[in-house]
């Protein structure tokens, strides 16, 4: 059973004058645990929408998404939030760190869904912070970190519950080349360590080449898919 299975996924947005805009036009693919995938394509091609639907932040118009054999959209709002909390990790283009919290606290944010962090969770957060190379800056606030460091904290935050699916929406979009490479490599390293499915939406061909598979999007459809090199 694939860890992630996307089947004929469609998404349509209603416009202001009832003119519908079909963003995804029947996307299908599947991924096994430990696999990684780079989604590339021009702006407005539906890449981020796909990521939001897989991440359960948005609902498909039709089609289905199955994560470890479960349809998340059959869950109610609370169950879905809990499902997302336990199974999906997000890394956004903007790091979305809370400026009022320290690095450690930011990594622990997902634990707040249960009320408070347990000692194991705090230990896990410390390990992750060590792994991203910020062990020395565990008590720093986001304002005291560089852009690349912030994004690394965001990666650690996404992995706190060892999610089955790790989603990254242009995680290097705001970073320079050096930091981009570092973040890309870190994502892949962490994904390998955690045996998670990793999907990254990126404009960067360089980064896409780091991934096992690529999905090229154009106008809401998969233009091409395949292992690295075939679609670059």
């Amino acid at each position: 059973m694939p860890a992630l299975e996307v089947d004929r996924l469609k998404k349509t947005f209603s416009g202001q004058n009832n003119d519908d805009l079909e963003v995804l036009k029947g996307i299908s693919f599947a991924m096994e645990a430990g696999e990684n995938l780079a989604v590339v394509g021009p702006s407005g091609s539906g890449k981020s929408t796909l990521l939001h639907i897989i991440g359960t932040l948005d609902q498909p118009t039709s089609g289905s998404v199955s994560i470890d054999g479960q349809d998340p959209f059959s869950l109610n709002e609370k169950e879905l939030a809990r499902f997302r909390n336990q199974n999906i990790g997000f890394v956004f283009q903007e790091h979305h760190l809370l400026p009022q919290l320290s690095v450690l606290e930011n990594v622990l944010i997902p634990t707040l869904a249960e009320g408070s962090s347990s000692a194991q969770e705090v230990e896990r957060a410390r390990e992750l912070i060590e792994q991203i190379g910020l062990g020395e800056r565990i008590g720093h606030r986001p304002g005291q970190l560089s852009g690349g460091e912030r994004q690394r904290v965001a990666i650690a935050r996404s992995l706190i519950f060892r999610p089955a699916i790790l989603l990254a929406d242009e995680p290097t979009g705001s970073l320079d080349q050096k930091n981009s490479a570092m973040v890309g490599e870190m994502l892949l390293r962490m994904q390998q360590t955690e045996k998670a499915v990793l999907i990254v939406v990126t404009h960067s061909g360089e980064m896409a080449r780091l991934f096992d598979r690529q999905l090229a999007f154009c106008d809401g459809q998969v233009e091409a898919s395949g292992p690295v090199g075939e679609n670059a």
């Binding site: 939030a81 997302r84 979305h96 944010i109 869904a113």
Partner: peptide, 16 residues
Amino acid sequence: VSQLGLLSAVGLNRSQ
């Protein structure tokens, strides 16, 4: 609001 969006994204439900 973006912080709130993040909290939702990482699994806090709306009422939380």
